[in-house]
Structure formats: C-alpha cells, structure tokens
Amino acid sequence: MSERVITYAEAIREAIGQAMESDPSVFMLGEDIGVYGGAFGVSGDLYHRFGEERVRDTPISEMGIVGAAVGAALVGMKPIVEIQFSDFTAHAMDQIVNQAAKIHFMLGGELSVPMVLRAPSGSGTGAAAQHSQSLETWFAHVPGLKVVLPSSPMEAKGLLLSAIDDPNPVIVLEHKLLYKTSGHVPEEMYKTPIGVARVLREGKDLTIVATGVMVSRSLEAAAQLSQMGIEATVIDPRTLSPLDMGPINDSISQTGRVMLVQEAPKHVGFIAEIAARISEGPAIYSLTEPVKRLCGMDVPIPYAPQLEKAVVPQLPDIVSGAQDLMRGV
C-alpha cells in the first residue's frame, strides 16, 4: 500500500478538523478563516464542516481576538487563533506576552490558558518587510510560552495536535513556503511531543541544526554534500521552547563540528541560544572547529526577488557553509 501524501496546509487542516470532531471545546477564530478559507487556504472547508460558531471569522482586531482566545481558554475552551501573518502578532503582543504567557504562573497556578496561536512566518513570497519576518525569538524569550516550528507536513499535524492538547499557550509558526509542500502524513490522530528534537539524517562529519524551512533546505544540502563525500547529521529541534539539546549534544560528540542554520537575522537570533548551550558543555569539548552560524542578514526582508533571496540562507549557502566548516575556514 502506498503511503498517503498531503500538503502541509492540508495536514494542519486535518489536525484541526480531527481535534474539533473529538473535542467540542476546540474552536477556531481569525481573520478570513470562514468562507474565504484563510489567507493561505489553511482553514479551507472547515467553515462548511463545522459552521460559523466554531470557525469564527473575526474583525481585523488582533489584540481583541487574541484576548478573546485567552478569555475563552481561561474558562475551559480550547481556542485556536489564526493570525493572518505572524508579523501582525505585534498588534497582539500584550495579550500574548503579558497575559497568556503569565497567567498560570502569576495568578498562582489555579488558572491556565490552553490556547494555540498559529501564524504564517518567514520570507520567500515577495511580500516584503512587514509580511515576511521570522519572529520566533520574540516568543521563545518569554517564559510561559511554548514555541513550535513545524518543518514538514508530518510534523505540522503531529505538533499541532500536541499543541491543541497542551494546557498552556503554544505559538505555532508555520512557514509560508511549506504550505504547498507535500509529504506522507498518517490519517489517524497522532501527537508529536513538544520538546523533543528529531534527527532526520545521520552522518559522521558534521552536525547541522536547522529550524523551519531551513530543515528541508539543509536536508537537500546534506544530499549534495554526501555526493562530495561529506556526511552530515541534520537535526530539527522542532520546538524552541522547551528546547531539547540532547540529540544535538550527542551528535556533536560524534562529529566534532556544528553548523546552525536559521532564516531569522543573526543578531540575537534563537540559534544563538543553541550555540550558547553547546558552549556551556559538555559538547564544546568535542568541537574541533568553532561553532558556525548561517543566518538571515541583519536587515528587514526586502521585496525584489534577488534581494529577498540574498538576505536568507539558500541551498548553495548551506552547501558551501558546510564545505567551509570541513576545511576549517
């Protein structure tokens, strides 16, 4: 029997649909998620299947709708908020950072906020500086938020089902370039644990740690490198908060070399946290070369396709970055 293949967007929709079927407290709210089907087509036909109460179109009101999700979650619902572009979370930061993230701790533990906030993230669509950012570091820096970056259709479904079941606020940043990519996704409901990294490929020469769309790009790079006689391990942390360093440290102890790849700007990016943790030991003692970071440039995402490509790591950059690391430059 051949494995079923669906897109990343379909995998997310399937997860939401299954969660809504099995749990009446799950509902969705966001801008244009109803009859329009979502700006990136993720909610699709859910509106027709579950109706306007549970697939709730909202006014353009990010602070209001995230706040409403927090309130609904506080009294026992499991809202899934879609923010049309992750950049617009800036409008809702008070509700995310000062309310959702802190309520369980700050109010003494009786209440909690079991909500999911999904948002399309990242560049590559020509949408320019206000519709293309990778803001995961903002959220990962706030205690009380879990941050998830699904890198494939399989991860998208499993991580989202875990996020919906989690009694805490979970930020799921979906990469826009992945929505139309396909892969095998089991039909049944399955949960990919939050806080467990995944080793996608094992190789003895270097360890590549990549997030978001950089995961598939790094896998492609690893295939090319293999033809050149360089064998790379590729690890996807999958969740930034909480962060699972175990497989990263283990791999470095085998390879002695590590390259960290992210789309977000280098300066104070999340990947720097991984570098810092490596340096805290014990993996640092295995390193034969300094840690290498391959990141977005420290500029806003530009519009022109050649400029946009220039500011984030592309496949050839990852290949040549790995070669440089092997040569010790």
Partner: peptide
C-alpha cells in the same frame, strides 16, 4: 489576584488588559 472559585479571572497590571479577556470568557 484571581480566584477561580468565585469566577474572578484576575486583576491585571496592564491597563485595559482584562477587557478583551472578558469578551473571550463571554464568547465561551
């Protein structure tokens, strides 16, 4: 201060922070 038992969803250090939360609790 919050008190789940009496339905107090919490005081708030952010001016107006609780107002959208109230709307959400009402939506629920």
């Amino acid at each position: 201060i919050a008190d789940a038992k009496t339905g107090n969803l919490g005081a708030n250090g952010i001016v107006a922070g609780g107002i959208p939360i109230a709307a959400g609790a009402a939506l629920a």
